[in-house]
Amino acid sequence: MGAYAIGLLSGDGIGPEITASVVEVLGAAQRHSGSALLRWVRLPMGQTAIARYGEALPAFVKETLRECSGWIMGPHDSASYPPELRHERNPSAELRHGFDLYANIRPNRSIAGIASVARQADLVIVRENTEGFYADRNLFGGDGEWHVTPDVVVTAGVFTRKASERIAHAAFREAVRRRKLVSIVHKANVIKRGYGLFLDCCYEVARQYPEVRVNDYHIDAASALLVRRAEEFDVIVTTNLFGDILSDLAGELVGSIGLAPSLNAGSDYAMAQAAHGSAPDIAGRNAANPAGLLLSAALLLDWLGDRHADRRLRELGDVTERAVYAAIRDGVRTADLGGTATTAEFTAAVTARLGES
Rank of each mutant, 00 (worst) to 15 (best):
S247A: 04
Y4F: 14
D220N: 09
Q273I: 07
L139K: 03
R213C: 12
G141T: 10
I72Y: 09
V190A: 15
G292H: 01
Y269L: 15
P280W: 12
F198H: 05
G27K: 01
A287T: 09
Y134C: 14
R119Y: 04
K187E: 00
R66H: 12
R307G: 03
A275H: 06
G305Q: 09
P82F: 07
H276K: 04
V25W: 04
S296R: 06
V212Y: 09
V148E: 11
L301A: 07
E231V: 03
L293I: 13
D306Y: 05
A344Q: 13
R333S: 03
S267W: 00
L43A: 07
L9D: 01
A326L: 11
T155V: 14
L253S: 04
G11Y: 06
V23K: 12
V235H: 04
S35W: 09
L225Y: 12
A260S: 14
E94S: 15
D281I: 00
A327E: 06
E204N: 14
G13P: 05
A20R: 13
R166S: 00
L337Q: 07
G74T: 10
G284F: 08
A118M: 08
S256V: 08
S80G: 06
N189K: 08
I219W: 06
I328M: 05
V205L: 09
E131V: 09
G46I: 06
P107Q: 02
S267L: 09
P150E: 12
E84K: 15
A175Y: 00
V176G: 00
R109P: 13
P44L: 06
I6L: 08
R179E: 14
L8Q: 10
W40M: 05
L241P: 14
L65R: 01
E145T: 15
A279P: 13
Q47I: 11
A250L: 05
C202A: 15
I257T: 10
T342H: 11
D318A: 12
L295Q: 01
E84N: 15
E345Y: 00
R52P: 03
L199C: 07
R322K: 14
A170L: 03
L301R: 01
A297N: 05
I125V: 14
I191F: 14
I114F: 01
V124Q: 08
G243P: 05
T64V: 13
G317C: 07
R109C: 09
V41G: 07
G355Y: 08
I14S: 07
A112S: 13
E24R: 15
D336N: 02
C201I: 11
A112Y: 04
T155A: 15
D216R: 04
R312L: 01
E63T: 12
G144R: 13
A297E: 01
G70L: 03
H308W: 09
E321V: 00
E356Q: 13
Y4Q: 10
D318R: 12
T64H: 14
A222H: 09
A29F: 02
A170H: 02
L101P: 01
N215P: 00
V126G: 02
D100S: 14
I14E: 01
I257Q: 03
I167R: 07
L85C: 06
A29Y: 02
R229D: 11
T130E: 12
G284P: 11
A309H: 15
I105C: 07
L294K: 11
P91H: 07
